[in-house]
Design a protein around this nucleic acid. Structure first.
Length: 888
DNA sequence: CAGTGAGCGAGCTTCCGCTTGACTT
């Protein structure tokens, strides 16, 4: 007989197994095993008709939750049950936080063990820690479980009460939630600030000064005893200098005049100041800070970062990647310090081990900080990793090492320089001892500030020194609106408010993008019209729920529930059914919310109304008694739309499309129109006989204003025939496609495509050049060609190579079109041809398959964007939700 | 791919937090 231990993740199961006695069996629950029904399909048949079944909470009967085992967990539960049958003791070893405690409780409810059962908790996987945990087991903490259940129910009530309201008032398939709606509101509020922003301009002077042939620069700060205005003196609402600021504002003329006067005067050092500064290293990574840094330094999305971190974790290279703790274990500190003294020397070691404390709200700290795993950190170049995986590991390694390094010591030097009645300032920064800078400098969200961290050397100066002014320039500046959120800054903001959890930051962003509350433009997240409409409705009717502090207050109550100071049921009753309660408020306000005004958005910079419609946003402009409506381009957002664009759209609607002119040969009119996919030109009018006249999109980078009749004629002349293939006699054409210009052989038959190279031009390319390009092999899809991790040799059957590649789910063996994962516990190094053959045989397609299926490598153009509608299987994931796709 | 935005309507959409999984004629 034996003891069954249940943990959350299979990787953790594998690691702790070796610290447990032989007869202990460790299994993973894969996170939560029960939940409220997600949709109608999850509701048991006997409860189907009940009005509270979809909500999954019987609010009239003591807020009793309806728990089900989701489809993807049924197999796991079955396996756990059968493992339990062979055990004579059960240890529940899920994480020691609210969610972990709840998982243990649900396991108890489901498995109903008849054998002795205990709750085991540990924070570190070492022989001693596990031993200590075995000796100090306890029972499941019911109060903590209740706190989790309250959280779960509250989130369900918010989400499943507000979302339907949005369907009724704005558009179907929208969503609202305690976390996502606040995140969207942050984006919207920032965009509003940007829209209300008025830029101001100011000038100053920049001098290049010299002493003993070492030039340095200084900036004008004071004139005639008055400070010279800078960006922070402006009122963002007006673009003017704020009231009560005693400053001089220079413009182009006054700055130039001042320049001409000062260049002739004497320059002298009037004041010198130098002060020492020390800098401490940043704490080791949490999920949130890792995502931020990977976004700033490696330009990875939160989702990509997590996928890579998961991989590193599974390879045993780093500790758990979903954590809110900055705590380092004894083992980690020792390992980091050993690395520092070996690689940088004793000088660079922090005199005492440095331990950090978590400051973010609501942290639960069930895990360590993210750091290289083990008691001796693997050096980045010894990991065998490459590409992004190596980059992320390197980042984690450096940040961890740096946290145990000595402080950096700097000297900041400020010199004031007098030139007649003007004062200039020069700042220098000298690094006296780099300390942890050697290993790691935290990235910045502000590129200007990032520059600042570099050393700026000033020559040795003394008060009264005479200086030579080599150059003096007047420079113009403009105040900038506050920057849009990026993934990094949004995650940072959410975390500091205690909103969302490490396991959810990446999915919060995915949800916002999936629901089209925001689009990603460059690194920035830009809120859409839908986001404005939804945020407006929620702010007007449920201000408390979209308040940044709502989650913090909820967390406080949950803490009080877990200590027994607050009773959970009255809290939920008040929250949902009370006078100010959610359900009460929805019922009260439902009538008053007019759908057409909820869908309408008024923007300060635009004199028309934008309406969120079934087919995307459109503008409505008053025009006598029949308002004019016009669709907006698909990527239009409140922040990208300007009044000229709208006027053009409206004018086109009123006067018909702009006519560019007549076709020089056929005499047909050529129109410039604007559609959902941007501007395009059209030859002739659409009539009933010819409903689809020839059309062509403008090439990238050409705006509607720049289009000439010539360009339109050339675009409409496409495809351009280059000639016949000298060998096969097949037609060769050049054309403009979704991925840019290309050439094609046999456009009505076999269709062999190649993209044009950087130097080639669609309109001048010759048949000879086209043949050259066509002779080259097709470029491999994706960014980089995959390199095999290891070659195992050739298959005895067909002599084709068998190789190991790195895939999204770990390394796998490849032979032709057959892929197979490595057996559990076998490393890439240990794999051999002999081990691979049976794996491949088991995966190989049976019978005749294999010959036809060449599509994988051939042309399978993705239908729409990168978002593919994946199989109906994974009903869990939000990103796989079927979408209304308007392309084809 | 390309000019719409209301109406009749069955049944459905949706939350947050834990965790990995891997389709076929």
């Amino acid at each position: 007989m034996s003891t069954l231990v249940i943990v959350e993740s299979p990787t953790k199961a594998r690691t702790i197994r070796k610290y447990l006695p032989k007869d202990y069996r460790v299994e993973a629950s894969m996170g939560h095993v029960r939940d409220l029904p997600r949709s109608a399909a999850d509701i048991p048949t006997d409860l189907k008709g009940l009005d509270w079944a979809t909500l999954g909470v019987n609010v009239e009967e003591g807020f009793e939750p309806l728990y089900i085992v989701p489809k993807d967990k049924q197999k796991i539960v079955k396996e756990l049950k059968s493992a339990l049958a062979d055990a004579d003791e059960l240890l529940l070893a899920t994480d020691e936080d609210r969610e972990g405690e709840s998982i243990s409780w649900h396991l108890l409810q489901l498995l109903k063990p008849k054998i002795p059962t205990k709750r085991m908790v540990f924070h570190e996987i070492t022989a001693e820690a596990i031993q200590a945990a075995l000796e100090n087991c306890r029972q499941v903490d019911q109060k903590l479980v209740r706190a989790q259940e309250t959280r779960r129910i509250l989130d369900r009530l918010v989400g499943y009460t507000l979302s339907p309201l949005l369907w009724r008032k704005i558009a179907p398939h929208l969503s609202a939630g305690r976390v996502q709606s606040v995140a969207v509101r942050l984006l919207v509020n920032r965009e509003r600030e940007r829209l209300a922003f008025h830029s101001g301009s100011y000038w100053d002077l920049k001098a290049t000064l010299d002493k003993n042939k070492s030039p340095f620069t200084a900036t004008l700060i004071e004139l005639g005893g008055q400070r010279v205005a800078t960006g922070s003196d402006f009122d963002p609402a007006t673009g003017q200098i704020q009231a009560n600021r005693n400053v001089v504002l220079l413009n182009a003329t006054t700055a130039q005049a001042l320049r001409d006067r000062l260049i002739q005067t004497d320059w002298r050092v009037s004041q010198l100041e130098s002060r020492p500064q020390t800098r401490k290293p940043a704490p080791p990574f949490t999920t949130s800070t890792l995502q931020q840094e990977a976004n700033r330094k490696l330009h990875l999305s939160a989702k990509d970062t997590m996928r890579i971190a998961q991989k590193l974790y599974e390879e045993g290279l780093i500790t758990y990647m979903r954590t809110d703790s900055v705590h380092l274990s004894e083992q980690a500190i020792t390992a980091a310090r050993a690395c520092v003294s070996r690689m940088y020397g004793q000088n660079f070691l922090a005199p005492k081990p440095r331990q950090f404390t978590t400051k973010s709200k609501g942290a639960q700290e069930a895990h360590e900080a993210i750091r290289p795993a083990g008691s001796a950190f693997v050096l980045p170049n010894a990991t065998g990793l490459s590409g992004r995986e190596l980059d992320v590991y390197d980042l984690i390694w450096k940040r961890t090492i740096a946290s145990q390094m000595a402080e950096a010591r700097l000297t900041l030097i400020t010199a004031q320089i007098q030139a007649d009645n003007a004062i200039f300032r020069a700042s220098g920064k000298q690094i006296d001892f780099p300390g942890f800078f050697r290993a790691y400098v935290e990235g910045s969200d502000d590129p200007d500030a990032a520059l600042e961290s570099q050393e700026v050397i000033l020559p040795t100066l003394t008060q009264g020194d005479a200086l030579v002014c080599q150059k003096l320039d007047a420079q113009a500046h403009e105040t900038q609106p506050p920057a849009r959120f990026t993934e990094a800054t949004l995650v940072k903001a959410l975390e500091s408010e205690g909103i969302g959890r490490p396991s959810t930051y990446a999915t919060i962003i995915s949800t916002i993008l999936d629901r089209e509350y925001a689009i990603r433009r460059g690194n920035a997240l830009e809120p859409t019209f839908t986001a404005f409409a939804v945020t407006g409705l929620l702010e007007q009717n449920f201000p408390d729920l979209v308040d940044l502090r709502f989650t913090a207050r909820m967390e406080q109550t949950l803490d009080d529930i877990s200590t027994g100071e607050v009773n959970w049921l009255p809290y939920l009753e008040e929250f949902y059914l009370g006078d100010k309660g959610l359900e009460t408020q929805v019922k009260e306000r439902e009538q008053g919310i007019d759908p057409s005004s909820a869908r309408a958005i008024h923007l300060p910079n635009v004199k028309a109304e934008v309406v969120v419609g079934r087919y995307g946003p459109f503008v409505v402009m008053e025009n006598g008694d029949a308002p004019v409506k016009a669709s907006l381009p698909q990527d239009a957002t409140p922040g990208s739309l300007n009044h000229e664009q709208i006027e053009q759209l409206i004018r086109q609607k009123l006067e018909g499309p702009d006519k560019l002119g007549l076709h020089p040969e056929t005499g047909e009119p050529i129109f410039l129109l604007s559609g959902r996919f941007g501007p395009y030109v059209q030859l002739g009018e659409a009539t009933t006989e010819n409903p689809k006249p020839k059309r062509a999109s403008l090439p990238k980078g050409v705006t509607a204003e720049e289009v000439t009749l010539d360009l339109a004629v050339t675009l409409l002349s496409l495809p351009r025939t280059l000639g016949l293939h000298p060998e096969t006699g097949k037609l060769i054409q050049a054309n403009q496609g979704r991925f840019g210009p290309y050439v094609v052989v046999d456009p009505d038959g076999e269709k062999e495509y190649r993209s044009l190279k950087a130097g080639d031009d669609l309109f001048t390319i010759t048949l000879e050049r086209a043949l050259e390009i066509l002779a080259e092999p097709k470029a491999t899809r994706g960014r980089t060609k995959k390199e095999a991790l290891k070659n195992l040799g050739n298959h005895p059957g067909d002599d084709a190579p068998i190789q190991i590649f790195n895939g999204p789910y770990g390394p796998y063996v490849n032979h032709g079109k057959v892929n197979a994962s490595l057996p559990e516990g076998v490393t890439v190094e240990e794999m051999t041809l002999e081990l691979a053959l049976p794996l491949l045989a088991a995966k190989a397609p049976k019978g005749k398959a294999g010959t036809k299926n060449t599509t994988a490598n051939k042309s399978t153009p993705k239908k729409t964007t990168t978002r593919k509608t994946t199989p109906k299987k994974s009903t869990q994931s939000t990103s796989t939700r079927a979408k209304k796709t308007t392309s084809g």
